[in-house]
């Protein structure tokens, strides 16, 4: 299972200095990591994207949703890699940090050999982004799997977990899509 999350650092609202925001989302230890870091805005959204990417796996794994980012606890092993723990689970995370965005992929196992891509879209409306992201993802899949682009489609289950289909048959591909502001990303294996 796999999950990803992207944060557009230019469009995300800088509400992180609201103490109550921090208390709702981050543990004391995480708040400390943020407060001593050189770039607080970047570190905050790095930890956030780790939690979000890991949450997407949790929902697939256990079939339940909740809203409590503090329960997903971040550990950084380096500036771009780390892991998240929740209940008895551990998810590995790998992040890409640029001046414009932070992108994290979380996976259940280190060994998962996934394909991941990030790209920019000038139009930041939700629907346009969502469509462009899907099209880019289908183009990649149709090339790599030798399938007709027009027959690919995504169906979401009741929890909003996306599954990739070719006509009416579900493909044995794990995937996750994300967009925020002007940036999009997909990951699959």
């Amino acid at each position: 299972m796999i999950g990803n999350d992207i944060v557009d650092l230019n469009t995300i609202k800088p509400n992180w200095n609201r103490k109550r925001f921090l208390d709702k989302v981050f543990t004391e230890k995480e708040q400390h990591i943020i407060s001593v870091s050189e770039n607080q805005h970047q570190t905050l959204w790095l930890l956030w994207s780790m939690k979000e990417a890991a949450y997407k796996i949790y929902v697939q794994q256990f079939g339940k949703q909740f809203f409590n980012p503090k329960k997903l606890v971040c550990y950084l092993s380096s500036s771009t890699s780390g892991y998240i723990t929740i209940e008895n689970e551990t998810y590995t995370t790998t992040s890409t940090i640029s001046k414009d965005y932070i992108y994290t992929v979380a996976s259940l196992n280190y060994s998962e050999n996934y394909t991941s891509a990030v790209f920019k879209i000038e139009n930041d409306s939700y629907i346009t982004q969502s469509e462009s992201l899907k099209n880019r993802f289908f183009e990649t899949i149709s090339k790599s799997e030798g399938l007709n682009f027009n027959n690919l489609n995504i169906r979401k289950n009741i929890l909003g977990v996306p599954k990739l289909f070719h006509n009416n048959s579900k493909l044995p591909i794990q995937m996750s899509l994300t967009h925020c502001g002007n940036y999009c990303g997909y990951v699959y294996f």
């Binding site: 944060v7 995300i12 609202k13 509400n15 609201r18 109550r20 925001f21 709702k24 989302v25 956030w48 979000e52 809203f67 409590n68 980012p69 503090k70 329960k71 925020c180």
Partner: peptide
């Protein structure tokens, strides 16, 4: 988006003058 969901919760707290615990 989920970052804004935190804002929704903070705004609900302010509008009704209540505090919502994480659980």
């Amino acid at each position: 988006n989920s970052a804004n969901l935190v804002d929704v919760i903070l705004d609900v707290e302010d509008a009704f003058d209540i505090r919502i615990e994480n659980d």
